[in-house]
Write a protein that binds this DNA or RNA. Structure first.
Ligand SMILES: [Mn+2]
Ligand SMILES: [Mn+2]
Ligand SMILES: [Mn+2]
Ligand SMILES: [Mn+2]
Lengths: 219, 219
DNA sequence: AAACATAATTAGGTAAGCCTAATTATGTAT
DNA sequence: ATACATAATTAGGCTTACCTAATTATGTTT
C-alpha cells in the first residue's frame, strides 16, 4: 500500500519532473510540499528502498516506472474529481483544487472507473489539463503558450500553465473561458503585451505574464 | 480540528450509545474499532481533555454535545455519499459502505451542502438510515422491527437493523427491497418465523433472524 | 470474606512523518 | 587552489496512534 504522504511525494515529484526535466532535487521537493528539506531527505530514502523512486545521494530523485504509475493514478483521480465538482456540483474552476486534493486519495478502482463513466470519459479537467486513462496514458497534446503565437494567428484557448486562484479569478473576471477563440491582432514590442480579439467580439490587451500562461492550440 | 482517528472514535461511540444506551465501555469501543483496549484507554483520555467526550475512569465514556455534533456530521456525510454512490454511480447497496468510510472524512462544508442539494435533499440513505441535516437533526422515525408485528398487519419495509453484506445480499437475492409492502400472513409459533406476502404478490417464509432485522412502518 | 474472572488501566515501546540544529557536500567566485 | 554560498545530509527529538505485557479495579461466585 501507498500512504497519503507517499502519494503526495510521488505527485510532487511527477509535477516537478514534468516541468523542470529529469532529476528532482531535495530542495525543489521541500519547496513544493512545504516540508523541511531534512524531512524530505529522510522520506525519499525510504521511498527509494520501496523502489518508488531512484535516489542518488546529493543528486536527487526520479520516479521509477511503478512510482510514475502511482503518480498518474493520483493525478487521474484528482482531475476526474475536479470535473465532477465543476460539472455536477456547480463549483467554479477556482474552488475545486483543495477539495480534489482530498478526494484524490480515496482508494477504490471501482469508484474511479464508475466516476469516469458517469462523467462521460472526459479527456480534460476544468483547467484544461489532460486526464490520463486507467493505464496512465495521455492523449496527444499540441498546445503552446499564447506568448509563442505571432500576429494574425487564430487559436483556441484550451488550458492554463498557471493554476493559482489569482490567475483563474483574473480570467473569470476578464470573461476569458476555456474554448474561447483568440485572434492575435497585435503584439506590443515594448512590453510584449498582446492585443487579442475574443470570440470575434471583444478586444483585450493581455500582459506578457498572462499570455505566457494561456495555453492554446492552432485553429 | 478533528483527526481521522478522533472522527472514527466519535462515530463509534455514537453508534454504540445509540444501540446499547448511555455509557460506552472501553471494551465495546475496542471491539467495534478493532483497536486494542489499552490503546483505547489512552485515546479516550486525550479526547476527554479536548472535551469531545466525558470520561469516568473504569466506567466508560459518553459524547459531549460537541462530540455528538461532530459524530452526526460524519454520519451525515457517510450517508449522503452512500446515496450518491447508489443513485448516481450505480453501485449496489452492499458495495458502498467501505467507500463511504473514506469519503466521510473529506472536509468541506461547501462540498457536503452542494452534494445534499445535488441529491435532492434525501432523507434516508440506501439502507433506510435517516440522514441528519446540517444541524444534526433527524426527522421523526416510527419504524420498528417486523418481528414486533402481529398477524394481519400490513407494513412497509423501510430499513435494516443489520448492515452486514451477508444480510444485504440475502435480501437482494430474496428480491426484498426498501419500499416493499409486507403483509404478515402468519407467525410460526415453534421457530418464530414469519410468513409474509410481498407487494401483494410472492409469499415468503422469513426466519426470526431475518424479521428481527427488517425495519418497517405501519401502513 | 476470599477467590476468581473479566475489564480497564498503566508502563514501556514502535513506526510514520514531521521538526531544528549541526555537519558535510557541491559548485562558483576569487 | 582557497574561500564562500548554497544544498543536502545526519543527528537527535517530537507527536500521533497504535502495540504487548504487567498491574489494578470491579463485579460475581463460592
Ligand atoms: Mn487541481
Ligand atoms: Mn485541474
Ligand atoms: Mn454505511
Ligand atoms: Mn448506510
Amino acid at each position: 500500500m501507498t500512504s497519503l504522504a507517499e502519494e503526495n511525494y510521488l505527485k510532487a515529484i511527477y509535477k516537478i519532473q514534468e516541468k523542470h526535466g529529469d532529476v528532482v532535487t531535495t530542495s525543489a521537493l521541500a519547496e513544493t510540499l512545504a516540508i523541511n528539506a531534512a524531512s524530505v531527505t529522510d522520506f525519499i530514502k525510504k521511498m527509494a528502498v520501496k523502489k518508488l523512486i531512484s535516489y542518488e545521494k546529493s543528486k536527487g530523485v526520479r520516479l521509477s516506472e511503478q512510482g510514475r504509475q502511482i503518480a498518474l493514478s493520483i493525478i487521474r483521480k484528482h482531475r476526474l474529481w475536479e470535473v465532477w465538482l465543476v460539472n455536477n456540483l456547480g463549483f467554479k474552476w477556482d474552488e475545486v483544487h483543495e477539495i480534489a486534493e482530498q478526494l484524490e486519495h480515496v482508494i477504490s478502482d471501482e469508484l474511479i472507473e464508475q466516476l469516469d463513466k458517469h462523467l462521460g470519459y472526459p479527456k480534460t479537467d476544468p483547467h484544461g489539463d489532460l486526464i490520463p486513462d486507467a493505464k496512465g496514458r495521455f492523449i496527444k497534446n499540441t498546445s503552446k503558450p499564447l506568448s509563442e503565437c505571432s500576429k494574425g494567428e487564430k487559436v483556441k484557448f484550451t488550458g492554463v500553465a498557471e493554476h493559482s486562484n489569482a490567475f483563474l479569478q483574473y480570467l473569470t473576471k476578464s470573461n476569458i473561458k476555456l474554448g474561447d477563440e483568440l485572434l492575435v491582432e497585435g503584439i506590443e514590442e515594448f512590453d510584449k503585451s498582446f492585443q487579442v480579439k475574443i470570440n470575434n467580439k471583444e478586444r483585450k490587451i493581455l500582459s506578457k505574464e498572462v499570455v505566457k500562461n494561456l495555453l492554446v492550440i492552432a485553429l
